[in-house]
Amino acid sequence: MTTPRQRYRDQVRTEIKAAALVQIRAGGVAALSLNAIAKQLGVSGPALYKYYGSKDDLLTELIIEGYDSAALHIAEAASAVREQTPRARLHALAGAYRAWAVENPHRFELLAGTPSPTYQAPPETVDHARDVFSSFLPVIGAGRDWPAGAALIAQMRATDSPGAAEWAALHAPDADPALVLAGQVLLWSRLHGVVSLEVQGAFTGMGHDPATLLTMEMDSFADALGLP
């Protein structure tokens, strides 16, 4: 059980994060101001720093919560289609990724871009970032062949990325971890590319539905890996 003091502290932190997201939604990360939040909440600037030591600390918590929100949304989609073919699951998960981003453009931009020129994401954000794609790994692991990706697979096999191989093996235990990781890099570049352009408004006025482009990209990816 938490104490009244801890519950009050948690409530204030929640209010700070809510106010921060309103600022980011209105003007991007550059609009984030701890002093403005303090004024809105009726406390002094120094008092606010009792809850977050710096703007970067606040950004880190917002980023982690953004990753967790996206990961949960995609995991729920994965659960709903777990009996379908890998290709069908891929389309469902990609659609869930896109839907979350379109519905939360300010949070997506927080995850997709550089929050500030001096911000350095701490190591603890890595696992949360990976969780966004955890539901995709079993789909990638179902690939039958990927000769065109041999060079990328070889690079991933030779790269010492802390925890990456274990992450791949956990979610796709019957597949080559290097193939899964290489496939994830390719998937991320295609999926993130289309969705980022849509969120930025790059497709406005071009006369096509971004969902159609995403479907084409996912079919191309599925063909490359031989997904049934």
Rank of each mutant, 00 (worst) to 15 (best):
P210C: 03
A78M: 02
V139N: 03
A168V: 09
A175N: 06
T114C: 00
L111R: 01
Q40E: 15
E166G: 07
R82K: 12
H192E: 11
N35K: 14
Q23F: 07
S44F: 02
I37Q: 03
Y51P: 10
E15F: 07
E198W: 03
P162M: 08
L179Y: 03
A142N: 04
I153T: 13
Q120E: 13
P46M: 09
L72A: 04
P105R: 03
A202W: 10
G66N: 06
A175S: 14
A20R: 03
A30I: 08
Q6K: 09
M216Y: 07
G53K: 15
A142P: 03
L187C: 11
F133C: 04
K39S: 12
L59G: 06
D57Q: 13
A38S: 12
I37E: 01
P122T: 06
T114A: 10
T2L: 13
A178E: 02
V29N: 05
A178N: 04
P123S: 01
A70L: 13
A75V: 00
R144T: 11
V102N: 08
T2C: 00
D56Y: 11
S161N: 11
H171G: 04
D209S: 11
A99H: 13
D160Q: 15
E15D: 14
A31L: 02
L214M: 04
M216A: 13
G205Y: 10
H208K: 05
D10N: 13
S116Q: 07
H208L: 15
P105F: 02
A75K: 08
P46K: 11
M206V: 05
A47H: 14
V139A: 03
S33D: 09
A175H: 09
A78D: 08
G205K: 06
P138R: 01
A151S: 09
Q155R: 14
R87K: 04
P117T: 09
A20C: 01
Q155E: 13
P173C: 02
K39L: 12
A154P: 06
A71N: 00
A202I: 09
L179T: 13
A158E: 12
M1E: 10
G113Y: 02
S196Q: 10
A47Y: 14
L214C: 10
E198I: 00
A202Y: 12
G183F: 07
R190T: 03
F221N: 04
V185T: 11
K50A: 08
P173R: 06
